Simulated scan of single mutants.
Amino acid sequence: MTKEGLDRGPIDEFDRKILDVLAEDGRMSITDLAERVGLSKTPCLARFRRLLSTGYIEGFKAILNPAKMELDHVAFTEVKLTQTDEKALSAFNAAVKKIKEVEECHMIAGRFDYLLKVRTRDIRRYRLILGESISGLPYVASTSTNVAMETVKESGNSFGKMKG
């Protein structure tokens, strides 16, 4: 890697520091970011742009308060498919992305095929989404729901301190 980290190779310790700081505060100015990671402004900006253009940083978003928006009911839905060939997986993946209440969707290696994190205002709304949207997704054989009683830790998409 060059002194300023301008090549397209693997990330180094300065890049990891930049990512750690931005994960805590993505609205920080480049000047403040440079100061926090121990670089001058120009090389910090170059690294920031490279991390953005190479996909290490996918974007920026506001982290909303679900309780204030009356969206603090969280259910985790286990989904078992009727088949798991590529056609079925692709169809399910495309369709589940269209359900706005599905906050996360993970393909699972285990006793079921997908785990969905579903956020709604209450159990009635969840039941409606389950019955009218999730159960009707392509190739769904069965679902099982676990309701979160309390959120102890939720980090959004911040990974904390990055390891080498």
Rank of each mutant, 00 (worst) to 15 (best):
I134R: 06
G9C: 02
R8A: 13
L128D: 12
G55N: 04
F14H: 07
F92D: 01
T77I: 15
C105W: 07
G9Q: 08
N93I: 13
G26N: 04
S142Q: 13
S29E: 01
H106Q: 10
V102Y: 09
T2V: 07
Q83E: 15
V74D: 01
G136C: 04
R36Q: 01
A75V: 11
D25P: 07
I129V: 15
V102E: 06
R47C: 05
E35H: 14
G136E: 01
T143F: 01
P66Q: 02
R119T: 08
M107E: 14
V147K: 03
P66G: 00
R36H: 02
T31F: 11
K3R: 12
F92Q: 03
F112N: 00
I123F: 09
M107W: 13
E70L: 10
E4S: 10
S158E: 01
V37Q: 09
Y56Q: 01
L22F: 05
E154R: 05
D12M: 09
I18P: 02
L52C: 02
K163D: 03
T151D: 04
K87I: 13
K100H: 13
M107N: 11
M69I: 15
S142H: 12
P138E: 12
S135W: 03
S142D: 12
P66W: 01
K68Q: 10
E70Q: 14
G136W: 00
T2Y: 03
L130P: 07
E150M: 04
R125H: 11
A23L: 05
G164C: 05
A91H: 14
G26D: 06
A95Y: 03
H73P: 00
A23M: 07
S90L: 12
L22S: 03
S29I: 07
A95Q: 11
K68I: 14
P66H: 06
K161L: 15
A94D: 08
R36G: 08
S29Y: 00
S144P: 02
L116V: 09
E70K: 14
F159S: 07
R121Y: 10
A67V: 11
R49S: 11
F60H: 03
V140E: 05
T145F: 00
A62P: 06
E132Y: 15
A95T: 07
K100D: 14
A75N: 06
E4R: 08
S135C: 10
F14W: 02
I63C: 04
K3H: 04
M69T: 14
A95S: 09
L116G: 00
A75W: 02
N93T: 15
D85C: 08
M28H: 04
L115G: 05
D20H: 08
L71R: 14
G38Q: 07
E70I: 10
E4A: 09
D122K: 00
D32M: 09
T42E: 09
L137F: 12
A109S: 15
L6A: 06
V140C: 07
G26W: 00
A91I: 15
G160K: 01
H73F: 11
V37N: 06
D20Y: 00
